[in-house]
């Protein structure tokens, strides 16, 4: 492992969920309000996962009071306390931009019926994919 990979590994969190588009997640993000810090929870559907390794990020979409809100998080950011995966969705696309034009029943995502392996093997699979996707680093 070269020095750059080492530096990136040091900053990565030990355990992160293997996210996919269509998953429903609850993100616990730290926010600073005035002087004190508190944890803000943002729950919604993952509409895209981009990047790999240290640079992996994902966008969560939710509709509140009839307004669509999308937030992008860096998965290894120190401002993220915890990510709970509530549901795995069954989707065919990697980027769910089509959800932006849909409301209510149309914006539903079926739950994945296929066997979802537990976090451990997914973790390794994600890690291996990340390494192969950035050989130039």
């Amino acid at each position: 492992m070269n020095v750059i990979q080492q530096l990136e590994k040091e900053q990565q969190k030990d355990k992160v969920p293997a996210l996919r588009a269509g998953d429903t997640v609850r993100v616990h993000a730290k926010v600073v309000e005035g002087t004190r810090e508190r944890i803000q929870v943002f729950e919604g559907t993952v509409i895209r996962v981009t990047g790999g390794g240290l640079r992996q990020n994902f966008t969560v979409r939710r509709v509140t009071h009839g307004v669509g809100v999308e937030r992008t998080f860096m998965i290894h950011s120190p401002r993220i306390d915890k990510i709970d995966v509530l549901r795995h969705g069954d989707v065919r696309q990697g980027r769910l931009y089509y959800l932006r034009g849909k409301v209510g029943k149309e914006a539903r995502i079926r739950e994945r019926r296929r066997l979802v392996r537990e976090d451990e093997p997914q973790e390794e699979a994600a890690g291996a994919a990340e390494e192969t996707s950035q050989p130039t680093e």
Binding site: N2, H76, P78, R79
Partner: peptide, 14 residues
């Protein structure tokens, strides 16, 4: 020169 990477700052920016 070994290459480039990114560092996280405490405020979440890079």
């Amino acid at each position: 020169k070994l290459g480039m990477t990114q560092l996280f700052n405490p405020d979440g920016t890079t």
